[in-house]
Each structure stands twice: as C-alpha cells, then as structure tokens.
Design a protein around this nucleic acid. Structure first.
Lengths: 369, 369
DNA sequence: GGTGAAGATGAATCTCCTG
DNA sequence: ACAGGAGATTCATCTTCAC
C-alpha cells in the first residue's frame, strides 16, 4: 500500500520494507510525514579484535587512544547523519525512541541533543533474564537504555498517560521497565535453527512504546528494521509502519513474520482516556441550561458559601470571579479546579457540581462515562 | 593529615576538604596518586518555571547557580576540563564513577570516552521512592545513571566480585541497583531545618560503589564533595578521601558530618536493602508479554464475559476498567480481587488468570538487586 | 506511651487553548 | 507572539500531631 501525501510530493510507502541504506532511503521520503521513529542502531560494540565500523569496514587495531577516537568519530558521523535524516521525516509533533547500550548510547544521546531533539525521558529496559557475566570482572550487564525525545523543545508529543497507568495497574509508569529478553517461540530462527537476528527485541518492549506514544493509525518508521519487531507490533496495534533494512536476509525473515501477524480488532485497541480529552463544558452552561439557578449557593469543602450569578461567575463574601478563581482565592492557592471544589445542595444533601458537568457531557453524546 | 607521596613531590592531603574550584585544585595535586574518583557534577537541569504538586504545594527545585550553564557547549567545555584534570590524578589502574541524569549523562559519557577512559559498565540507580511526575506528561523519572570507567583500556581495575555477590545474596551483582533516595535522619539539615544540600546522595549508593571498586586504605577523591557523602562512607569503610568543594557552607556541613562518622569495625554489612514481598505484577504485563491477547475473553465465576484491551483494561457489555473495577461492578461489590475473579479459556478449559501472574513472578525471580 | 491520621517532600528539563 | 484563564495532576516515605 502506498499513499500520496499531496499532489507532486513523494509517496509514503506504508506497511512495506524498503531495502537499502537507511540514510539514502529516508532522504527520499517526504518531509514531516512520520509520527514516530523507533531506532535500534548498530551498537558499535568494541570487542577486541572484532571491531567493525558502521560501514562494515573492519578496524585493525584499537590499542591506542588515537584509534579509539577515530572509531568514535566515525560512529558519531554516522549517528549524526541518520539522526538528521530521521528528524527531517518527523511531523512537528512527532517523536523518536532510540535504544542502545553503554557502548553507543552516550554518543547517540549527545547527538540527539545537538540535532535539536528534546529529550523527554531516558527509559531503562531492565532485563529480567540477562546473560550473566561469565568472567566475573564486571557487573552483569542487565539493562539497555532507551531515549525518548520530541522533535524540538515545546512540541506537543503524544503521551497516553492513562493507558500506561492502566498497564501499570493504576500507578503512573516509571522510567524503568522490567521485561524479559526475546526468547522462546517469539525468537525468530533461520533454516539451521540458529537465531535469525543477533539482537531481536521483545515485542513487549515495542508494545509499551507504541501504546504510550502513538495513536491508532499513526505512522511508525524504523530505519534499522532487522527482522521487523517494530512492524509486527505496529500491525497488531493498528498502526502503520515503514521499515528500512539493508540486509536482504533480514528483510525476507521480516516479511514472512509480518504475514503471520494478526491485527487486533477495533474496540480492544481503544485505551483508557484522560479527562483532558473530554469536551470542555463552560460552567455558565449549567446556569443557562437550568441545572443551577442564578442565586443558588455553592459550598466549598470548608463550608464557605458563594452565590451563582447569571453569567456563571461566583460571588462570595470577599471574592468574585470564576469557580476556579474564587476557589483559589479562598484557599490562598495558586490555582484551583472549581469543578471538583464546589458542591451544591439538593434535598439537604451536598452534591459535587462535577456531577452536573458529567450529565451535560452525557447529553451531548460525546462519551459514555 | 597530609602524606608525602615521594621526596620532592607535592603532598597528597588525605581526609581533608579542600576549598576552591575543582579543576584548579586537582591540577595542584600529584599526578597518578588516586585510586578512585567519585564525581557527582552539576546536572544542568534547565528548569523552566515553578512546579506545583496536585495539592498545590510548590516543589523545592534545584535552582542553584552552580547548576546553570549557558549552553551545551559551555557544559561540554566544563565537563572535558574537569575530566582531564581527574584523569591525570588517577593511578594507571584507577577508576572513575560519574553519576548523572538524562540532562547531562550523555554529554559526560561521550566526554569520558573521548578523554580515553574505558567504560566498564553503566549502572542504573533505580529509586524505590522517586518523586512522581505531577502533571502526567512523562514517565516518572525514577532512576539516575552512573558510569564506571577505568583510566584506559586494558587497565587492571579493582572489582571485588565476591564481595558484591555476597551483598546480593549470592547472585552476581547486576547493573541496576534498587536503593531509596536520601531522606530521614541521613538527610543533612541546616539551622532552619531545611535540607543542607539539594542533591545529597544516599550512603547506600556510595557503600556499594566503594565495596565493589576499592580496597581498604585506597584513596578516593570527590571533586564535587557537597556535604560529604563520599567522605563519610570512605571513613566508615576504612578508605582515605580527598574532598574538593567550592561552597564554604557545604564544606562546613560536611566537616561537622565527618566528625560524627565512626569507622566500621569488623564485617561490612549492607543495611539498605531488605527482602521485598512478592513483586507486584500489573495485569497489563500479561498483555504486553503475550500471555493474554488483546480481544481475548475473560470469564467471571458467574459466566459473565469481558474483553481484554491493549492497555490491560477490560470492557464488558456494560462496564470498563481494570480487572478489579469491572469485577466489583459486576458483583455490585465495593471491591474485587480481579486476579482470583477472572478466568481465561485454553483448549476448552477455564484457567484462573492468577496462574499467569505466578508464571511471570517465577520468571522475574524475586531477588533484591 | 501507643496508634493512626494528616502533613511534608524528593536532581523535574511537567498544560493548553483562546484572544 | 504573548498573556491570561481553565482546569488537570502524585508515590513512597518520613515527621508531626491528635487522641
């Protein structure tokens, strides 16, 4: 499936895996067209005698500081180039996730900041079943680090706070996630029964990333697609994906995998919504609609009274203004949510005015509550 | 106490707090004389305005002048200069620890690598009691990152593998440490009863660092000494310290604190961690982990059905919410333990979802780390 | 004095729409 | 662009105070 973004613009290939170098491919896609980028770039692992540059050339010796610096410089150049191409593709309110280990994540994080991305959190994937450190010379390397960043400072990134809070059983989601590594049936094998990709990420990780920072229908791009975990989870969750992968073997494994993935049905993709998403109800509407009469008395939690005026403002013994303003003044607080602060009387009982707001919203037919 | 390192060399002032700029002071100390450096540099937080809790109280932020930098370039220059001075002081087999947050740690990590340090691990301090995210706009910032690096590649750094394994109840120490933040009696207060330093680190953190990467009698230098946690733990554990601190008020508080510290005799005991109860498993993890599929039907004891959604909430014919909420609504009860209430179907048989929770717990292991 | 409720607080890059 | 107003938002732990 391919979608024209606008007449004359390059097309945006959705739910496809594109072959080739990710920087070149990204530069051929239309600017500002992607909601989220998830990137799992090469880690630049400096294993003795087996160091490869990002362009796959081999580094001969890494036994002096100059060589170290040369390899870091090469890696930095590569990092800054793909990050620039990725940033160009993002919509203004888009965001990026990058995962890495201590070998590369500090280079990546600094490059992100230098490119103008605005870091929102670093998130630690704490592996519940990491590989032990066999030689006992260091700590068990039991985590990887993800950086979540918006395209620029002040951008309105997507964050499904309530959905994540629900996933975490009612507590707000923290910056450390405990999840197992990818093993068992989920781990793709090649014809020989060996693992198809050396660093396949668990779907649970991508699930949380996408539930938290995309909405159904969003476009998610992965420039280092590998065997397609990003695409698989995107498909399940009703998001569109664009994969870029240089290696034909990985593309093949990913294509077969994606064909097997089934999309979840519509209703279950919905997540818990926040109050912020509810339609606004001006307090004055309660008066207009006769749910509260002008002159009626509202009562604060501490028993202070204020009268409702015809324009929906309040007047107390000493203050006048909106329900929020009078509440804040009475409490000496910088702000106050009048909806949850005030109550009214019916048949001798005190009832929160927020109940009336919910009633109005229900009548408006916007949301069942 | 001051010790001559060798004839004609500058003296090494041990167990003292030196005033002044850390770069200048370090450059005045003898080269290659220190076993370990622990550094807690300014994080360059870049806070914008005030932040209030939902109860309208104001958060006492880190707005001190010492944390203000004009730009990343300014911060980088500062970082590279103090790291160069620090590296010069280290013995060839010495090591460094630096702690930071996502605001600065990527700059620090890249600078460490560029300076020739060799990263051994990044270690995540997972806070058991972090400050929440009050506005619900990001993940709870629940961890900080430490980088542990040797002076150069191939150096024979100190690592007390067995001691750390013992600290961790016989399991290899991992790269993620769960420790509480510094509060209560340990937190130093000034004459007004306010915190003496805005970012005092817990002694438990330094305890683990020093038990793991120094030996008794070693010299530990802290160029950002603050109120002296590094010195206090060094003294307890029979290590020597050198503190450098610019602020006279912090030096005074640290001096008083150090006078009260008593050196441990005999066995070194870890007191900060206690065995936790069974780990809480959010229901949403069963969905993320693929143990239950979104859209799958759960069945109540009375045969009522509810569908699982992607965020781990349930939706039935009439209700939606958590497994506990929907259970309570269906029963008309004030509360309900969803774990023991709901069942799912496998091969025609009904199985309690609690079985899946037990499965997850078994995978997670239940060790403190 | 003991118990429990209520208050305080922690390295935080913490809103969004309308006029 | 900027100012102002609406209104949404917290978890674990320790201290203080009432009973």
């Amino acid at each position: 499936m391919a979608v024209k973004t606008k007449p004359g613009a390059a097309t945006l290939p959705l739910n496809e895996i594109l072959g080739g170098d990710c920087i070149e491919v990204m530069n051929g896609l239309p600017e500002g067209s992607v909601d989220l980028i998830f990137a799992d770039p090469p880690y630049n692992l400096q294993l003795r005698g087996d160091l490869h540059r990002p362009d796959n050339s081999r580094v001969d010796a890494v036994d002096d500081a100059w060589d170290q610096f040369a390899s870091f410089a090469t890696y930095d150049k590569f990092t800054r180039e793909w990050l620039a191409a990725a940033r160009r593709l993002l919509k203004p309110n888009g965001a990026i996730w990058v995962i890495g280990s201590y070998h590369n994540i500090f280079r990546v994080g600094a490059a992100l900041q230098d490119a103008g991305f605005w870091i929102l959190n670093d998130v630690v994937w704490r592996k519940s079943n990491p590989m032990p450190n066999f030689r006992g010379k260091r700590f068990t390397n039991a985590h990887e680090t993800m950086i979540w960043a918006s395209k620029s400072e002040g951008a309105k990134y997507t964050f499904n706070y309530e959905a994540l809070k629900t996933l975490n059983e009612g507590l707000q989601m923290r910056s450390d996630w405990v999840l197992p590594i990818c093993t068992g049936h989920e781990r793709l094998k090649d014809a020989n029964g060996d693992k198809a990709h050396p660093t396949q990420k668990p779907e649970s990780l991508l699930h949380r990333v996408m539930v938290g920072s995309t909405n159904p229908g969003d476009v998610v791009l992965d420039p280092f697609f590998g065997t397609g975990t990003t695409g698989a989870v995107a498909k399940m969750l009703g998001r569109s994906f664009i994969g870029i992968e240089r290696d034909a073997g990985y593309r093949e494994a990913a294509t077969a995998r994606l064909a097997r993935v089934r999309k979840f049905e519509g209703a279950v993709l919905e997540t818990s919504t926040s109050k912020r998403a509810e339609p606004r109800v001006p307090f004055g509407q309660l008066v207009e609609r006769g749910l509260l009469r002008p002159g009626e008395v509202l009562v604060s939690p501490r028993g202070q009274a204020a009268k409702v005026r015809v324009d929906g403002s309040l007047v107390s013994a000493e203050h006048r203004g909106s329900i929020h303003q009078v509440g804040a003044l009475l409490e000496g607080a910088p702000s106050c949510n009048g909806w949850t602060y005030w109550q009214f009387k019916r048949e001798g009982r005190l009832i929160p005015i927020d109940l009336l707001r919910q009633q109005l919203r229900a009548e408006m037919g916007q949301r069942p509550s």
